[in-house]
Amino acid sequence: CLSGMDILLTVDPVNIHYILSSNFANYPKGMEFKKIFEVVGDSIFNVDSGLWEDMRNSSHTIFSNQDFQMFWVSTSVSKLRQGLVPILENAADKNILVDLQDLFQRFLFDTSLILMTGYDPKCLSVEMPKVEFGDAVDGVSDGVFYRHVKPVFLWRLQYLIGVGVEKRLKRGLAVFDQLLEKIIMAKREEINSHGTHHPSRGEAIDVLTYYMTMDTTKYKYLEPSDDRFIKDTILGFLIAARDTTSSALTWFFWLMSKNPEAINKIRQEVNKKMPRFDPADLEKLVYLHGAVCETLRLYPPVPFNHKSPAKP
């Protein structure tokens, strides 16, 4: 392998089920994975064992929280109506070409950062401004991708001297570090001024607030008082949410543009089963769900997964 790693590739569903499900405990991410993804530190995507268990359980708690889900819906709908739709209407009126992937990345970055921290970077507007934060995510994502095909000594050297994609990765991390440092500081001041406050039912809560006010007695390995841990956690979620979903949406609409019959069926299903938008009715949209799943099958946003056997 060009990257210097000893790799065995498999696409057999039986093998994948064995590795990711039935014998999951024997296949942690491994040290090679940690080297490549060291930029996200101790986020859920880069840890194993007890810390991974704590991260999974804590993230499941917040993401399944009804108030957070309502916050998720209201944030997405607001950005859709006030950001995405006006841009598309403006493009249609003026016959302007639109880069859908860039548009969806902006949409997802805005909504994700609001959900993660409560802060709106306002990337999504008719002016389509150049946003430093978006470039920072691209720099980190590109750097991580190319680490898969480069020898470790090469990308480490490039990172050290600051050249190529590693230079962009390093710059992107610095931008995010500064941004998240300001957000975390402001959030701590807000929490301290009001005392440790656990949001009541019906009150919107972002992921940052959740982790900074969580009951740490429930988790053995989490360190929400450590700013580095908080930064790693938020950065990991941001990268995952922005790039994967925007990629899936881009491919979905491209496939729809090639299949007008599918568009008609989706419209008919939506008009019949969800004439007024209600998230609770989404499960009724069977054809739409199937179309999204087929998109993910044909063009998976995360096409491969690293695992390293603990035992032969």
Rank of each mutant, 00 (worst) to 15 (best):
K272F: 04
G50D: 15
G30T: 05
S22F: 01
G134C: 12
D226G: 10
L179Y: 12
F277H: 11
L8F: 12
S3N: 08
H289D: 15
A204E: 14
K187F: 09
P301S: 10
P121L: 08
G134P: 00
N46I: 07
T217L: 07
Y159P: 00
I44F: 13
Y27Q: 11
P309I: 12
D227M: 11
V98G: 05
P300Q: 10
S64M: 11
R81K: 15
D110L: 09
G202T: 10
L179E: 09
N90A: 06
S78T: 08
S112D: 05
S308M: 14
G134Y: 06
F304T: 13
Y221A: 11
N95Y: 03
V163L: 07
L154Y: 10
D281S: 14
P28R: 11
I263W: 08
S49W: 13
K231E: 13
T10N: 00
T196Y: 06
P303C: 09
I44R: 04
Y210R: 03
Y219I: 03
F68M: 01
W254V: 12
V144Y: 03
E132Y: 02
D48T: 03
L238D: 08
G50V: 04
S257D: 10
P224Q: 12
E127G: 01
Y287S: 07
I44D: 06
K265E: 13
S3K: 02
M116C: 14
K130I: 12
K34L: 01
E32S: 14
F63Y: 04
E261L: 13
L80I: 07
S78F: 06
Q158K: 06
H194R: 15
K34E: 11
D99S: 11
T117H: 07
V39Y: 08
G143F: 00
W72S: 04
Y159C: 00
G118M: 05
V292M: 15
L238S: 07
A174Q: 15
T117D: 09
H60V: 01
N46E: 04
D6A: 06
G290F: 08
E53Q: 13
A262E: 13
L20F: 11
H198T: 15
V270Y: 03
A25F: 10
I36S: 04
G30K: 02
E294D: 14
